[in-house]
Amino acid sequence: MNTATQTHLQRLEAESIQILREAVAEAEKPVMLYSVGKDSSVMLHLAVKAFHPSPPPFPLLHVDTTWKFRAMYELRDKLTADLGAELLVYQNPECVEKGINPFDHGSSVHTDMWKTEGLKQALDHYGFDLAFGGARRDEEKSRAKERVFSIRTAQHRWDPKQQRPELWRLYNARKAHGESVRVFPLSNWTELDIWQYIHREEIPIVPLYLAATRPVVERDGMLIMVDDDRMRLKPGEEPQLKSVRFRTLGCYPLTGAIESEASTLPEIIQEMLLMTTSERQGRAIDHDQSASMERKKQEGYF
């Protein structure tokens, strides 16, 4: 590069790499939380860049609910195999045993048990002292105040009153025994930045982000995809074939699709630019009440 001016994406990339390296240098046993979503994909790509020519010096951890879309499992296994990355898959044994699912137990219990509890168990099980997460500050109001490096108690709780001031690019990763650090390298990225970067860098993403004809049922105002035969149809419900895509990915019975014809990255970026609802609206878990994300975070949800 010959000019002294970096574009905003170049600055974001350099900043994220600096964060990834700093965290790894200061941690004893780091891990990257990998959800197979678009933000995870970008974070993993940045990690590959940050440590090149070495491979990323940490494993990937997928806190699995067994209810993700099949296409997510496919990409997860292919991508980690291609990268030669170490992938740890953790499923909360209590959930496996009790067969926790969104239909019998509701979205709240399902998410809390598989994801929130599962994550805490996995971190304790492997003894990780630092975990990278793909959260962005633009996702939700209370996240705008989240630090890049965030200390969690031994019980994995986040205390909004005990956050350390974060100055310049100096991150304080020191912690007492039992405490851990969550690090968010994508803090300053917006949804548009993520898509733009995926486009520019040709990062592999789950095809569900692109529109295709898929079987869906309409339920509580959301289009739910019938991804496998575990989907319980209510009386009178008949899956319809519609051209849909997903803006966020999670457990398929809890993730709403939008009707769309956008089947290429530029098209979905275009659609997003013209779209007037925010990204998280497709997630059933955020709807309870306006301060719900903050409460979940204090309880240990990422």
Partner: peptide
């Protein structure tokens, strides 16, 4: 953003907007 400060009508921390 944070619930407590919303009630009080004041911002009590650094928040980043884009």
């Amino acid at each position: 953003g944070l619930a407590a400060e919303r009630e009080q009508g004041i911002t009590i921390d650094v928040a980043y907007r884009f």
